[in-house]
Amino acid sequence: MVLVKNGQVASDYWQHIEDTDPLPQAGAVTISWARWLSERDSITRGPSELGVRLPNTIAADDVGADAGRFGLITVTYPNIGDGRAYSQARILRSRAAFKGEIRAIGSVVRDQLQFMQRCGIDAFELPEKALTEDWLAALSEFDLFYQPAEDSRPWIARQRHGRN
């Protein structure tokens, strides 16, 4: 597994804690969304040490005001065809105003990376072959876009009118 963040290979300092395991005293951890719901009142970590793993069946609006408690939210792709996490990521960025890391996990496919990035996902867990097969080139395959999204890149209808 390779972690790519903001277009670069990065090391993963987050520990992903199973529901059956206790939370370590210190350090950055992610927990499941279900655990967050049941233990939220007893969890005192700050956002730099707390992340949550969001299933793709949860409405992203439910994260709502809690978003500020997290430094990392993972969204999941069970397979190439299941695109629910795109909407979740956009809602987290646009409505929950989430500024932390949104990381795509699961079946993360080269040819979807740019879609994910445009939806506000800034980190990806990729298979090892991503490096030898130059997956990161996919992040710049397009530099023109027909619609606004959660990245700050210009889009064509605006560019036509000389605005960015």
Binding site: D82, Y86, Q112, Q114, F115, M116, A149
Partner: peptide, 13 residues
């Protein structure tokens, strides 16, 4: 047509 072309959110419905 333009809006829907490679829409990042709605390409995997």
């Amino acid at each position: 047509r333009q809006w829907s072309t490679l829409h990042p959110e709605f390409s995997w419905l």
